[in-house]
Design a protein around this nucleic acid. Sequence first.
DNA 1: TCTGGGGTCCTAGGACCC
DNA 2: TCTGGGGTCCTAGGACCC
Length: 430
Amino acid sequence: MYALVDGNNFYVSCERTFRPSLNGRPVVVLSNNDGCAIARSNEAKDLGIKMGAPWFQIRHLEDSHGLVALSANFALYGDMSDRVMSIAAGLGPGQEVYSIDECFVDLDGVQGDMKLRSKRIRQRILKWTGIPCGIGIGPTKTLAKLANHIAKTAERKPGSYPAEMAQVCDLSTMPEPQLNAMMAATPVTEVWGVGRKISAQLGAVGIHTALDLARMDTATVRHRWSVVLERTVRELQGVSCIGFDDVPSAKQQIACTRSFGHAVTQLSGLMEAVSTFASRAAEKLRRQHSHAAEVLCFIRTSPFRPDAQYSGSMVVPLRRPSADTAVIVQAALNGLKAIFRPGFKYAKAGVMLLELQPDRLVQQELDSDGTDRSPLMMSTLDAINQRYGRGTVALACAGVGRNQSTWGMKQERRTPQYTTCWEDMVVVRA
DNA sequence: TCTGGGGTCCTAGGACCC
DNA sequence: TCTGGGGTCCTAGGACCC
């Protein structure tokens, strides 16, 4: 049996913890470059703001409806997430942190009233962090997700589901007729694993609700769609098909990509950006103790602009797998020089590390004396940047901020890093 | 003027093997 | 008229997730 704990409107709720004046107001958190809305308060949803809505299309609501927009503050959200997760872990013996705002908890062997227990945990998270959560319980992950959806929807839209489902919903002990009624009231799009494309295809054959999907014949589903959807159907039927990932495995690829604050036309600006992204990616690589065998670099213009379009990418193999920033930056820059075409307004670039492997598998070289100083240098670099802040020590090709004002991120509405930066800490005066 | 970033898994089809 | 059977590996692309 599983529980799914999920923070409501997570980024907005993090901001509200430190600025209670935002309660009751329509609030959105914007993506990097203040591009589009990636989190919305209930009031903002009620204004009809869609997930991913471009800011320039909704900014008129600032004046007309008191909409508040904030730049994304991921340092804050990451830290608040850690706090929420450590409290949620108290619900059961195992926890899988699935994303920044949600986790599955394994409830096997837990005694007592699961719903009451969940309500207490929910209350504790709210009291200790200020983040409101929904908790769903079910015999499979997909049903726990469904229960979570019901818990949140019942709270937000009274009348959509029975009122006692609000905040915490337990589908695991529900009598079948009632469970069927819940599934019949849930559109199939809300089922975990059913996206836009597949729900349209299902709709075309008369499958509109979670219950319709649960009652489909698994062989038909597998034949017409895939084993992925078949698993979803079985999970809805109460047969667990999706495993529990207690210890997250190392990533198979690592990316660092950004849209620019302003268009970049010169190779020099792109070189700075790509160097910076490659350095960041290498840091992430070292944190999970991996080496990369290939480096992918890409650049592209903005598909939203009427200008001439160009998109180029190249995979650069390394002579041998590495986690050395200098090696990875050099490979990325070699790729960049090969794909760069003058005369375009570049809007985005990125570096991806591919073919990752554990760093303990090292292939020595015949002409080497066996002493590789790179690991020591890299761990020193990471330690300094960890202690004194990102970018304290960097490769010179990442620039010294000369072009940063061009390609660097636009963040005009960022809130303080209340919990991760001494200077930004809240001061209480008597 | 202005449209995010970072992942995973699966499948189909082609190249190649005996 | 009629041209086998069975397998692996790789890649590109599509679907999904938050």
